[in-house]
């Protein structure tokens, strides 16, 4: 039972971290390596804001918005001007950005492991079963709400439909009078906010440190590829699946190999099903 719950928590956080990444991949078409650093930025923003005296929840909320705005600024200043130079240039600009963020945060905040100033909470016990801590419970709730919100946004609002249209076919979307720049802006804002949120979750359950972005980006990449490159629902499934896989795997190997399990699963899945999980529910369409 507890494995199931741990898996659910691990998976939900992975999912939130990877969602934004896969949105930029889908609409902008490149691998945004700086997404991992946006996670870290979210956690450090929160630290900074609580440091100047704001209550934790307010600090966290503001940090999420701040991440969104920062992401938007990056899109405007860095990525929009080089869009025509191809995905490799965009990818490595994001690598450069990742270094830049990481270096600046390191210079300001130092390299020590930090943690949020929140009270340690006990596991809630129902009957004989140990459930989650209130924090984990809260995280699960927020993740669920976020996912539902995102689903409604993408499926039923005009802006959401535009984003999906741009993601499917940019040229066609343009012909239909959709402004791809506005969609890009919005996607960057949402993606970076989600990253900030994920980073705060990671900080609540673990520590805040300089390497968290680099550690997570590899994981995020894996979830995204496993979910079938930019398919948002595939990513959700893949996040949960990897979360469970990591927790179940611990029954068989030592906890040092926790992430190695995830990578093992990814390698296995890709070798058997090269298109990722998406291929399970999408038959491969080919033109004749």
């Amino acid at each position: 039972m507890d494995i199931f719950i741990y898996g659910l928590v691990t998976g939900s956080i992975l999912l939130i971290c990877a969602l934004g990444f896969s949105m930029t991949l889908k609409t902008e078409g490149f691998i945004n390596v700086a997404h991992g650093q946006m996670l870290m930025l979210g956690a450090y923003f929160t630290l900074g804001l609580t440091y100047i005296g704001l209550p934790f929840l307010i600090a966290a909320f503001l940090s999420v918005l701040l991440c969104g705005v920062t992401g938007l600024a990056f899109q405007r200043i860095l990525f929009k001007p080089i869009k025509s130079n191809g995905i490799l240039v965009q990818l490595f600009t994001s690598v450069g950005l990742a270094y830049l963020i990481n270096g600046l945060v390191g210079a300001i905040a130092g390299k020590r492991m930090l943690s949020f100033d929140i009270p340690i909470s006990r596991v809630v016990k129902v009957g004989d079963v140990y459930l989650v801590t209130p924090y984990e419970f809260m995280i699960l709730g927020i993740v669920l709400a976020t996912v539902i919100f995102l689903h409604i946004f993408l499926q039923y609002t005009i802006m959401g439909k535009h984003i999906r249209a741009v993601a499917d076919n940019q040229d066609l979307a343009k012909i239909r009078g959709i402004n791809p720049d506005r969609c890009s802006d919005l996607v960057w804002f949402i993606a970076s906010s989600l990253a900030g949120l994920g980073g705060i979750f990671l900080g609540i359950l673990g520590a805040v440190h300089l390497n968290m972005g680099w550690q997570q980006i590899v994981m995020i990449l894996s979830v995204t590829v496993l979910g079938g490159l930019g398919s948002i629902y595939g990513v959700m499934l893949a996040g949960l699946l990897l979360g469970f896989a990591m927790e179940f795997g611990l029954l068989f190997v030592s906890s040092n190999y926790r992430t190695a399990i995830a990578f093992g699963v990814i390698i296995l899945v890709l070798v058997i099903r090269p298109e990722g999980l998406q291929s399970l529910w999408q038959s491969k369409g080919r033109e004749t």
Binding site: L97, I101, N102, G106, A107, K111
Partner: peptide, 11 residues
Amino acid sequence: SLRIALVGLAL
């Protein structure tokens, strides 16, 4: 840390 940032900026 700054030299990492410098590499990023150069890139």
